[in-house]
């Protein structure tokens, strides 16, 4: 009888814990994702608005910013200024990068010089707004600006749905690594970005006629935001996650640049998109596969 009672209590406690985990994910990932989807739908669905390519690209930028800032709000609260802790500069930085990303969305496709300038601006914003522990501001700036430049240039030739998939894979890997490093809030933030990338891809498929012409993957914002979250989680990690894993989680973007050189740049169609998606996703998938057992262990805390 006593055994039966304690087993019932145990089951009730574990179901309460599962309920709370579900609630945390619901508030910090699903609700920001829904808000992001509303923005994408409202901007990209009406034919008149979707005719403007820059507007659809800007919608993706706004969706990513909403996902990150919304997730931060549900996990931590309103961002305050000045940030009381160094990592609380993250939502401010994401909003600053979002503003830069809106300009990026308005630039003509071939305007690479402007994109370099905007990436430098994103790097400077990162160096100022995110003074991470044990990391030089210049390192933060170079990594964030560099990541932004990569995704901005990768998006430039034409709408690459593969970039959505690459963003989803990289953000998912960052989310899992942050969880292994015992940083639940940062894990949820990366989860919100991953979900938004997936939603952008899905919305792009649903509204294929409109999105494929005018849509995007977030350009500069996609790479910068993933780098910001990954770099923050890495800085607060007590060497639980191996350094190669943090680097490999974002390695798909520089690898994919090889497919933008010479004749490969003009390679289009289903097979080309699939190859690009595979190149973008393989490094983060390898990271997830190798670290999967550790993730299961991390859940026990």
């Amino acid at each position: 009888m006593t055994m039966c009672k304690s087993s019932l209590h145990l089951r009730a406690a574990s179901s309460r814990a599962a309920e709370q985990m579900f609630e945390q994910v619901l508030w910090s990932v699903v609700f920001p994702l829904l808000a992001a989807c509303v923005v994408l739908g409202v901007v990209c669905y009406p034919r008149i608005l979707a005719r403007h390519m820059w507007l659809c690209r800007a919608a993706v930028v706004v969706a990513i910013v909403i996902a990150v800032v919304g997730s931060f709000f549900f996990s931590v609260g309103w961002p305050t200024w000045p940030p009381p802790q160094k990592w609380h500069g993250l939502p401010w930085l994401v909003m600053a990068i979002g503003s830069i990303g809106l300009i990026d969305a308005c630039l003509p496709r071939g305007e690479w010089a402007g994109r370099v300038v905007l990436s430098i601006a994103a790097g400077l914003a990162a160096a100022w707004l995110l003074p991470l522990p044990d990391r030089l501001a210049i390192t933060t700036g170079v990594i964030v600006g560099g990541a932004g430049l990569l995704t901005s240039l990768l998006e430039m030739p034409e709408q690459r749905s593969s970039l959505n998939i690459g963003g989803w894979a990289a953000a998912t890997a960052m989310s899992m690594l942050a969880l292994i490093a015992n940083q639940v809030t940062l894990s949820l933030l990366a989860g919100a970005v991953a979900a938004t990338c997936a939603a952008t891809w899905v919305v792009g498929r649903i509204l294929c006629g409109r999105m494929s012409r005018g849509g995007g993957a977030g350009g500069l914002v996609l790479g910068s935001v993933i780098a910001v979250i990954g770099l923050t989680a890495w800085s607060y990690d007590y060497d639980i996650v191996p350094q190669w894993a943090w680097l490999a989680a974002g390695a798909g973007f520089p690898l994919a640049c090889m497919l933008e050189i010479g004749a490969l740049k003009r390679w289009n169609g289903f097979i080309a998109a699939s190859v690009r998606a595979i190149v973008l996703s393989t490094p983060p998938i390898i990271v997830v596969a190798i670290q999967f057992e550790t993730v299961k262990g991390a859940m026990s805390g």
């Binding site: 522990p133 015992n182 940083q183 639940v184 639980i240 026990s300 805390g301």
Partner: peptide, 20 residues
């Protein structure tokens, strides 16, 4: 008494031991 929980307590979610 639990290494994972110690890691979470030291993380930015709680005591933020890297900074403070």
């Amino acid at each position: 008494g639990n290494a994972n929980l110690d890691g979470h307590l030291k993380s930015p979610d709680f005591f933020n031991a890297r900074e403070f």
